[in-house]
Amino acid sequence: MFNYTLRRLLFTIPTLLFISLVIFLLLDLAPNDPTGNLPLTIPPEVRAMIRTNLGLDQPVWWRYILWLRQFFVYEPLNLIEQMFHITIGDGHRLRILSYATRSPVVDLIVERMPQTLWVVGMSYVVGIMIALPIGVISAYKQYSWFDQTGTFVSMIGFSVPTFFTGVLLIVIFSVMVPSDSFFWFPSIYDTTLKVTDLASFGKQVRQMVMPVFVLALYNAAQISRFMRASMLDNLNQDYVRTARAKGLSEQVVVLVHVLRNSLIPVVTVIALGIPQVFGGAIITEQVFKVNGLGQLLIIGIQGADIPLVQTLTFIFAVLIVLFNLVADVLYGILDPRILYD
């Protein structure tokens, strides 16, 4: 297992390099342009100059190498400098700058981490906590009213997109409910809110309720379906019959034997979903004005902000590859039958 992990880790380096190249070429090929969102009153000659100034007249391979150097050498060095308050070399290195904000991309990402982790991360945790018990009970009592209701709700939750549920919640809880009521929730997320005492914590919770609910519903719908399917598969296995025949209590059979085995594929689904947490939730962030990583990415894409999008997607790629590895390793641990070596 250890060897396998090590080998996989080594193999991720060329994989990630290749992925970064593909992403870069893709972004370069894409037909949108950083001057596309500027007002039409800016004449074409000035636009051409802006492009030159951004370095877009350089050949693709050169810009790619520059980005590699910035990402793998300059940014880590800068991070070390900041952490230990020292200066390496002359301390002047061109960091990866976003086209639109002209500020270091890494700083932008760090600035947006908190709201994304709070909202999207929390919704994922809540989603899993709802989904697992629902999936288990639904499968154990297959076709009971609980199962039917669960199926119905989760299918609605999955098939009605978040742009709709989000607006619906806002119309109900921000518009229809009077603003002095306990059930009124803000429709706009305040990213500058600092949690210092109980009152500001309460505010933070209130502004998280609606976006977390919308996303959790969506996540729970998906995971509970996989959980239920996996449980159903296992409940009919011979080992369950053996365990029951051995006289084990139903609780032990279901919660120890069946659940453990059923969790194997579900763990993959959950692990694979984690990078998406960091990716933010583009639509939900947009609806509630959370302005996290998802919104940063979409603004970058719309504005053809290549350094921003490249860096952000590459970080996602790293997370995806790593979490896939984690899922595989977990798999091997949870299911001793699987041999990788």
């Binding site: 992925i19 593909v22 997607t313 995806i320």
Partner: peptide, 8 residues
């Protein structure tokens, strides 16, 4: 598969 998951 990782590549496709990572592509924007």
């Amino acid at each position: 598969t990782d590549l496709f998951l990572a592509l924007p």
